[in-house]
Each structure stands twice: as C-alpha cells, then as structure tokens.
Design a protein around this nucleic acid. Structure first.
Length: 929
RNA sequence: GGGUGCUUAGCUCAGUUGGGAGAGCGUCGCCCUUACAAGGCGAAGGUCGGCGGUUCAAGCCCGUCAGCACCCACCA
C-alpha cells in the first residue's frame, strides 16, 4: 500500500476489526512450531458476564505476554473458555421466567436446564465477542466451557476419586444458607459488612430460684426459640454458683442448662450468652463441646417452624418483632441498645445468610492443602509480587472444609445415588450405582439420585488440566501442563488459585502453573471502586468506540438498585464528561493498562492518560507516514551498496539496542509499566523528536552522498520496523497495520507482524562514541533553544552562535555536526571565539566547560536574561555546596567507594567552572547600559 | 482483634542491590516549521506524610506516630 493511502490522522476504528478477523481466519492464534511451550489459561469469564475494566486490564496483560512469547518463538497457547457460573446463570434465566410469572418449578428440572442451555447459546457469548474487540489472541479453536462433555467428565472423575479416597464426604453441618436461593453457599461466598442493629438484653429466669434471672445480650432475639443453653465464663465469680443449674427459656418455658465455656467474654454485656447451636457458628462449636441439643427453628425460607407456637410460619424478622414485643409484655426485656454488627450476606443475592443445619457434601481440604503449601514454600510456584504468598499461606494454613454442594439445578450434578436407607453410592452413572447397590444387598433396590449440583468453583479448580483433555493422557496436556503463569486479581486467590493448586497437585501430580501474577483491581481516577451504584463505571468498549453524553447518562442511570441515585449520577456524569467520551481505540486503551500495571496495588484508571496514549498512537502513525514518504520507491539499501551511516544513524541504532534490553527485562518482571514507559520515551523522544528530525538533514540535503542517504533511509525504516515489533504485544492493531506497509522496505517478509521474531538486543551494535557525541549535539541545541525560548526570540529568526572555551573534542564535534546544529538551532552561523572577541551582550548557555554565546546586541532583554542566568546560578551554587560539603567530610572520603569519591570530585570541578562562568556572565549583563 | 499495602510535582503514578529527585496529564510563554495542532520548542512546580535512629551518605534500611485503602476473624 503506497504511503499516500495512509490517512493523515490515526483512526483506530478503520483498522482494528478488519485486522482481528484476518488474524483469526488465518489461524494465527493456534500454537505452532517446535519452540519451548508457553501457555496461559484464561480465567474463564462467567457466561453471564460482560467485559468490565478488570477483564480488559487482565486480558491486555495476558495478551501482551502471549504475543511476546509467540514472537519469541515459543509454542504458545492461550486457552480460551468460559465458566458456567452456576448461581449467576440460574438467576438470569429465572429472572426471565419471572417476567412471564413462571418459576423454575413450573418448568421442572430438565426443561429448566434446557432453557439455560438455550439462553447460553443465544446470549452467552457476549464476553467472547468483547474479548475479540480487545485484540485478545486466544486460541478460539480450543475454546472450552466448564459444562461441556469433556470438562463434565473431568469433574465427575475428580469427584469419584476424591470420594473413594475419603477426601469428599457428606454430612449434616451448619452451613451458610441463602433463604432466597434455597442453597448453601461456601464461606467465601459470604461477605460480611458492618451494619447498624441493636443489642437486645433479655431476662432468663433461673429455675428453682424464684426472682433470680440471668440477662443475656443478643443481636438476634428470634433465635432464642432454638436456645439450648446459657453460657458464662468458667472463672466469672458472679455466676459460678449458677453453673450446672438450669434457666427457663422465656416464651417457650423449656429448661436449658447453664454451662461454663472459655468462649464467653466476661467483659462483654452481662457476661451471659445464649447458645443456639443450630443457628450460630460459635454456638454450634460450643454445642459440640457440651453435647447440647441442636434445635432447628427455621424452614428453608428462614421462617419459623414451631407448630403450636404463636411464631410458627413467621418470617425471621417478623418473628423477631413479635418475640421482642412478647418479652416486653412479660417484663423480660431488660433493654435495647444501638449496636454495630457484622451482617453476613450472600455475595450473589445480597440476602442475609442464615446458619442452617443441612446435609451437604464437603471436600476435606487439610490433606490437599499440605502439599499446596509446600509447593509455594519451596518455590515451585512463585507469586508476583511475592507478598501475596503470605495471603495464600495464611488462608491455606487455616483452611476449612469446602462445602461443595449447591441446591441449584444449573451445574454439574453430584454423581451420588441413595437407597431407601440413605446409603450412598457414588458412581459414574445410575447403572454403575445400581450394580454397587446390588453387590451390597444381593438384590435390586430402588435408587434416587442426589438432586444437588457442585459449586461452580469445583470445576474451575480443574481448569488448567480439564481444558487440556484430562483424564485422557493427551498430547496437549503433555505439552502445556504445567502452564507458565496465571494472571489474576487478588480477590480470587482463595476461590480459585488455591484450589487449582490443590487439584493440580492431586490429580496431575504437578503444579498447575509456575508463576501467579497478581494484579490490583481497576478503580476510577480517584481510587474509588467502580460500581453501578456510584455511577462511576467505565465500559472498556465505550473507551474504544466512544459514547455520547446522553447515551452514557442513560447507561449509568438505568437499572439501578437504588433509582433515587439517578439524578446525582446524572449530574456527576454530565460534569465529568461534558462531551461524552471520545473514541480512543483498543490500542490506546491497552497501552494505558500496560502503563498502569505496576506491582500489586490498585489500578486507578485516569481518563487523562488514555488520551495521551491515543496521541502516542497517532505519533507512531505519522512517523510511519513520514518514513514511507521518504523511503518508498527509493534506495533503502536492500540491494546492497555502500552505506555511510551518520552520527544520528549510529546513535538511534544504539538506543534501539538499549530499549530492546529494557523491554525484555520489563516483561520478565511483569513490569508492563516500565515497558510502556521505555518504549514511549524511545519512540516519541529519541526516534521522532530527534532522529526523524536529524534524518531530514541528510534526506533533504543537496550535498549528501547516495551512501549517506541510503544509510539513513535504511536506518529510518529498520528502526521503525523493529519498534513496531517491540510494541506489538501491547498495541497489536496499529503495529500490524503499519508493519504490513513497512516490512518489505525493511527487508522483511511475512503476512503479519504477529509471527515475526521479537527484537533481540545486540550489544555489538551499541556505538558508545555515537552516544557521547550525540549527547553533545543535543546539549548544544538544547542550550540555544533554551536561550531562544527564554529570550523570546522569534523561532524563525536565525541567530549567530559563538562557542567559547571549546576543548579539542568540542571543536571536533562542532566540525562534524555543523549541519545538524545550523539546521536545528536555526543558526545563521556558528564559530569559535576567544576571550578577545566576545560580543557585547550575548546570552549564554554552558555545555561542560564550553560556553555557547548568542549575541543579541540591542535586542537583549536584560531583565529576562539576568533572571534566567540567576536561576541557573542559584541551582549550580546549591549543587556545588552540597558536593563540596561531602568532599570536605573526611569520613566520606575515607569510607565511600573510591569511584563515588572520584565522581564527586569531577562534579565539584565542573560545578566550580559553571558557577564562575555564570557569575561572570551575570556581571557582564549587569554592566550593560 | 490480627494481617497486608499505601502516603513522592496541581492530578494519576514510576523510582529493584542506600551515592547527582522522574514520567504522563494539567499549567504558563512562544510557534499553524514541508510526518503529526491528537503537533513543535521552551519553562515553572517537590523540606519524597511527621518524628527519631543506623550510615561518610536515606525517597530507599530500622523504629515510632498519623492518615488512607484493603484482606482475614466467632465478640454475643
């Protein structure tokens, strides 16, 4: 494509979609070659999900790693797939049914599950479409779903093996129960937050001691219906004589024991605690210790089931009100105080979770955890940043058994059957279970299957090997397991990371990944969590495509949990984005994420930054246009021919080696922010601001030789081409679009940049003398530019430049680079002077010992020049004092390393000259009329 | 109650064996210079949260205090 066809301005929308389609159609996302395998498993997004900023960030990081390693020649797989998300998905479909006034029970289990599958087929792939918009080079050919046949088989296999080893058991335990969903949830799925409540003080009479009573304090008076004891501290003198006696439970009149237990804090409240083993986790423990009865008082809706009492059928909160009122009337309510308490809610439904006694399945985790702790301790698995391993250890060392059964319909059905006596047969299918039963009984018996399904995280835990074909011994497993790195947020270390490690070690006999790169959570520009209710959510696709203000407002204010927030969000949004959000394109978004990917902490997404990176893309785009204009159809040294590289050519090639090295190092340490900054600096400052401008001197010169022009064109094209490859992992679209135009000019062949080798630094190409000389050129030009800027000299007005006190090196540099200097500083002329012929009133700048003089004659703005010089003078004096005081300190000279001392001496000398030069210059300007 | 992390320019953040304080955005001044005004050139701006210690030398190491954020936990 000829250069003139490149648009003048970078327009992401016009390139991105087309390129992605071509990548996918060509099959370039699949692993190829014979290199060392490299594999990342995508954390499978929920099938109900849509892309949020956290995904977009995480996927950018993973895609950058994948593209980098693919270009480095590794046989690279980024495993695609989705999670069936049990609760979330079931809720979506139930909500749809509810719109037609149906419940899942109206449909029946089979029909309901069919309906979920249908929904999944129609709208379950939103997020995979969005991933494509992000440029994610996932191997879609291998896409898996946690409920597909292969993965379901893995789930069943794992369940059966764990059961047979005694690592899965079934039992009646107190679990977290969601009374709305009618299912148990695991500890992790419960989030407790502080809420305002009350502390009720109740009087329990002591049996056989008329008039004597104990006062218990509770935040949940309704649970008193299930009390089976009152506890005091064993050493609490106030109550020691009562221990062993009985208390009479108010309202019901049951007699319950008064017991002593260390758990009770004598300082808190009255020092007496009511014990409800069936509805409180602590009380459950105490009940176990003391052999107390467990009285369940709720049905699955958390309504009271105590036939014959006035509370039967009341919801837990209605029961609370009535109980408190009844106690008051009987004079048994000692008092009520306000109280802050932690309220446990289900993270999916927001419902207050009820501790509830039910039969559930559990994984016995301790034996699995042991090996998993070792794997991190001995470094087989490394957390990045390292401190997350503490979080991991902490949890693993105190791990509780994992409740894996859910009373839902959508999920992997538990492979267990029961006979009429409640005997359990865990098997691959009903026939097998029946055969087992026959063996036990010697006769055919009626079996019923366990209705429950497994926790979604159970199948997620197998993801690193189930996706690769386990339990078959597949080639893919052999090649890609263990995977290289897991990229994830710290919020699911317990849910997922820990469990994958346990399952991987158990069933593969090896770790699931070598490294865990833990990133922060994406927040808004001020560190606030992005949430619908705060109205500060940014949709990655809106940043890519742009969105007008009204649409944004509508999006943010519709479907709110608290509709009364809408006006506030409306105003706030109109304030923050008066013109809506412009389209930045995927590459700019990705570059922004990369630049924010520093270790560990939160990622505050500042809209101000994405604009800067869009501009960076535009810069790159236009640099490419410039290069194409100047090299297409011209001799770029492809056919051989002598080359005479300029200083700038040698310099930029040297800088390229340095930035290549930095880039490799940055990726190795997962410091995408460093990578982004190094490449930004190189492309914008070194390549565009300096090199492209310097190249014009050769390209447009009448006197430059063909050898010089050839060398410059060659350098121009090759450094651009290498830069595109360096940048490609982060900004895949623009780099491929440009590369396809630039490649042949740089002597490269291929259909896409994706599969080109990643640039490797060659120390042999670093030309130190070029670096030194270029630094001098930059300093001289900088000095003159500074004078121009500060003196307000018209940028177009050529100036005479004189150099004083030049060393032989300075003179040599000047001679060699006079073309650069005249062109860049808009010099009218440049010459050496000695003390005798310095002009009347020059502005000055210093380069080492050398003085740059720009005679201004009567044009000089005396005040401006003085203030400029004085600023520098003060700074130099401060530096000088600091350095000198160091050198005056004998301890420093004795104890600091010699090279440091020597360095300071050199610096002191330089500053000495600088100060005196500036001083005399100031005197001279002052002396002017 | 335990634990972790953070505090550096107006804003968002880098600063990895302790040795001359940085970037982007924003601000100010001058320029529509033939790749790019989504641009060019120049400039201003910081007692690195407070205090103490170690050291010749501390943004960096140690202690302590303050503030912020998050995680875990059974105070009824």
């Amino acid at each position: 494509m000829p250069a003139k066809q490149l648009n003048k301005a970078y327009d992401p929308a016009s390139i991105e979609q087309e390129l992605y389609d071509s990548w996918e159609q060509q099959g370039w996302f699949a692993p190829t070659g014979t290199g060392t395998p490299y594999c990342i498993m995508i954390p499978p997004p929920n099938v109900t999900g849509s892309l949020h900023m956290g995904h977009a960030f995480q996927d950018t990081v993973m895609d950058a790693l994948i593209r980098y390693h693919r270009m480095c020649g590794r046989k690279t797989l980024w495993q695609a797939g989705m999670d069936h998300a049990g609760i979330a998905t079931q809720m979506v479909v139930e909500r749809q049914l509810a719109q037609n006034n149906q419940s899942r029970h109206d449909l029946g289990r089979d029909e309901f599950v069919n309906r979920v599958w249908e929904w999944k087929k129609e709208s379950g792939g939103t997020i995979t479409r969005q991933l494509r918009r992000m440029g994610a080079s996932l191997d879609w050919q291998r896409e898996r779903f946690t409920m597909d046949d292969g993965l379901s088989r893995a789930v069943q296999e794992v369940f059966i093996r764990l059961y047979n080893e005694g690592l899965i058991y079934r039992g009646k335990r107190l679990v977290n129960w969601d009374p709305k969903l009618h299912t148990a949830v695991s500890d992790l799925e419960v989030v407790s937050e502080e809420e305002s409540g009350h502390l009720w003080h109740l009087r329990y009479e002591v049996v056989d001691e008329p008039g004597k009573y104990l006062v218990v304090a509770t935040t949940r008076p309704e649970t008193m219906l299930g009390d089976t004891a009152v506890a005091v501290h064993p050493e609490d003198a106030r109550y020691s004589e009562l221990v062993g006696k009985k208390a009479r439970l108010p309202l019901l009149g049951r007699e319950i024991p008064i017991i002593a237990d260390d758990y009770v804090d004598p300082e808190f409240g009255s020092g007496c605690v009511k014990i409800t083993p069936a509805h409180d986790f602590n009380d459950y423990e105490i009940g176990q210790r003391h052999g107390l009865e467990q009285i369940n008082i709720f049905d699955p809706n958390a309504a009271v089931v105590l036939p014959g009492t006035p509370y039967h059928g009341l919801d837990r909160y209605a029961a609370r009100d009535k109980i408190v009122e009844d106690l008051r009337q009987q004079g048994l309510l000692e008092g009520i105080e306000d109280h802050k308490l932690m309220v446990p809610r289900c993270d999916r439904t927001g419902e207050v979770v009820e501790p509830y006694l039910t039969d559930q399945w559990f994984v016995k985790t301790a034996p699995l955890a042991e090996e998993s702790i070792k794997a991190v301790e001995d470094g087989r698995i490394r957390f990045v940043p390292e401190n997350w391993s503490h979080t991991y250890f902490d949890w693993m060392r105190n791990i509780q058994d994992w409740c894996i059964s859910r009373q839902l319909w959508w999920g992997h059905r538990i492979p267990a059957w029961y006979d009429a006596d409640g005997n359990i047969f865990v098997a691959r299918n009903e026939e097998e279970a029946a055969a087992m039963a026959r063996e036990t009984y010697g006769a055919q018996v009626e079996l019923s299957r366990d209705p429950d399904v497994l926790d979604t995280w159970f199948s997620s835990a197998l993801w690193p090997f189930s996706t690769l074909g386990w339990p078959e011994k597949t080639e893919a497993l052999n090649t890609f397991y263990p995977t290289n790195v897991l990229v994830t947020g710290f919020d699911i270390i317990f849910f997922w990371v820990a469990r994958m490690i346990m399952m991987g070690l158990k069933f593969m006999g090896d770790i699931p990944f070598h490294e865990v790169y833990v990133h922060g959570l994406v927040r808004d520009a001020h560190g606030q969590k992005m949430s619908k209710s705060k109205g500060n959510v940014l949709d990655p696709l809106d940043l890519i495509d742009g969105i007008d203000l009204d649409s944004l407002v509508i999006k943010r204010t519709s479907g709110l949990m608290q509709p009364r927030m809408a006006p506030k969000i409306d105003t706030q949004t109109r304030n923050d984005y008066p013109d809506g959000i412009p389209a930045f394109g995927t590459d700019a978004l990705r570059y922004t994420f990369a630049s924010l990917a520093s270790t560990g902490r939160n990622i505050n997404f500042d809209l101000g930054r994405i604009g800067g990176y869009r501009n960076f893309c535009n810069k790159l785009w236009n640099a490419a246009r410039f290069v194409l204009m100047n090299s297409e159809g011209k001799d770029c040294g492809l056919d051989g021919g002598e080359l005479q590289p300029s200083l700038a050519d040698r310099w930029i090639v040297s800088q390229l080696q340095l930035v290549e090295e930095q880039t490799h190092q940055a990726i190795k340490g997962y410091r995408f922010d460093h990578m982004a900054q190094a490449l930004y600096q190189f492309v914008w400052n070194d390549y565009c601001s300096w090199y492209l401008e310097l190249s014009k001197v050769v390209l447009t010169s009448d006197t430059a030789s063909p050898e010089q022009q050839r060398a410059t064109r060659r350098t121009l094209v090759r450094v651009l081409e290498a830069s595109l490859r360096l940048l490609h992992p982060v900004i895949p679209f623009i780099t491929d679009a440009l590369w396809r135009d630039v490649a042949t000019l740089a002597g490269k062949n291929g259909d896409t940049i994706m599969t080109q080798p990643y640039p490797q630094p060659d120390p042999g190409k670093i030309d130190k003398s070029a670096l030194t000389e270029m630094q001098w050129v930059q300093a001289v030009i900088g000095g003159v530019r500074n004078i121009r800027g500060e003196m307000n000299i018209d940028p177009n007005k050529p100036v005479t430049v004189l150099l004083q006190d030049a060393s032989p090196d300075d003179e040599e540099f000047l001679l060699r680079n006079i073309d650069y200097l005249t062109r860049f500083g808009k010099f009218e002329s440049v010459a050496m002077v000695d003390d005798r012929n310095i002009p009347e009133s020059p502005a000055t700048a210093l380069v080492g010992q050398m003085k740059i003089l720009v005679p201004l004659g009567t044009l000089i703005d005396k005040a401006a020049e003085l203030s400029r010089l004085e600023r520098e003078h003060v700074k130099a004096i401060k530096d000088k004092i600091r350095v000198q005081s160091k050198l005056d300190n004998p301890n420093f000279v004795e104890k600091a390393p010699p090279d440091v001392v020597a360095g300071e001496r050199v610096r002191a000398d330089e500053l000495e000259t600088t100060v005196s030069n500036l001083h005399s210059q100031i005197e001279r300007i002052r002396a002017l009329p």
